Computed example of a mutant assay.
Amino acid sequence: MSPTIYLIILLSLISGTIITLTSHHWLLAWIGLEINTLSIIPLISTLHHPRATEAATKYFLTQAAASAMILFSSMFNAWQTGTWDITQMSSTTSHILLTMALAMKLGLVPVHFWLPEVLQGSTLSTSLIIVTWQKLAPMSLIYLTIDNLSTTILVTMGLLSTIVGGWAGLNQTQTRKIMAYSSIAHLGWMIAVSSLMTNLMVMNLMIYLILTSALFWSLIYSKSKTIQDTTMTWNLSPMMTIITMTTLLSLGGLPPLTGFLPKWLILEELVTQNLIPTATIMAISALLSLFFYLRLTHTTTLTLSPNTTTTKLKWRFKPSQPTTLMLIFTTISTLFLPLTPLILL
């Protein structure tokens, strides 16, 4: 792809998200989501491969259906109440339609089937954009309309997402599908607490973006598309092996790493709201996710494939791409937990 075209697509992607983030009118929010969707489709289909074309088609159909549902719910609300303001949604039908549409946009259970398939058909760098940047616009709409959405539906969807995200990820050997189910599980934690405490949802989203970006950059750097590929990480960079290990453990939510912070606070909030069965099931489902993170950790750090002499010395070469951002994100993903009192104050 030409650098100019690539820059235009990235700028359109950024501007679409910013339009949705800053809008108070439903039509503007819908326009931002459409720009966002149309911008990323060329990025998904850059490989000129049937799998990439299939992924782009699935992504387009799913996102277009979700955007149509958002537009329909806002039109129905405007017909009932006479206003297009995002925060003034009082129609019950509109609430349910909007909740399902945003769940489809994010990839929450039970409308999550498109996410693993789309990620598997995309490159690692495009997958990184889909599971991080593409979540900002729908999450902002949830943040703006949270007072009008059904708490029961949100908590139920969050609970199901954590269970399915952990359970379905156990059987995967492709790193992109593992990260897709990891994304579903993490979004489940955010959605479950969104109607109870929006500050926790925002903090969890920020930490999720940092952790996922750090791990994806490690996978991009080592070109690890399957679990078997991760066994070559040590040859490429011994330091990268340690960084990937700590990032994976942090994603699993082990103390004293950063990923423990949102799970701890969300469980505390659920118990405070007397949702003890929900908190228990979510904590158990986190163990399912932890299993496949530990499996990746094991293959990355403790397993070494049979190598020739030349491949053992790959760490001597200079990196093929800049690593500054990756170092910043991996440092934050490891050492952010001691700053918890500053965040809570």
Rank of each mutant, 00 (worst) to 15 (best):
T311I: 12
K177G: 02
T233F: 12
W26Y: 15
K314T: 06
P255K: 09
S150Q: 10
T247W: 03
T300A: 09
I142H: 00
M232V: 09
S74D: 06
V111G: 03
T323G: 05
K225E: 15
V271E: 06
F291K: 07
Y6R: 14
T62A: 10
M157Y: 00
I178N: 06
H24F: 15
E268Q: 13
N148E: 09
T162K: 00
H186P: 02
I242Q: 08
L47P: 04
I35V: 14
M75R: 12
E117F: 04
K314V: 02
L187P: 00
K318I: 05
L290Q: 07
I210G: 04
M206E: 08
A65R: 05
I153T: 12
L249T: 08
T246N: 09
L106K: 00
L160D: 02
I153E: 01
T244H: 09
H298K: 15
A185S: 14
Y181W: 11
L98N: 03
S91D: 13
T175D: 09
A65I: 14
T308I: 11
W315C: 03
A101C: 06
A103L: 04
F336N: 11
T4W: 00
M240T: 10
L98E: 01
G82Y: 05
T92C: 03
L205M: 15
M197C: 10
I281V: 14
F260H: 06
I5E: 10
Q80M: 09
L219G: 06
E269F: 03
T340M: 03
A68S: 14
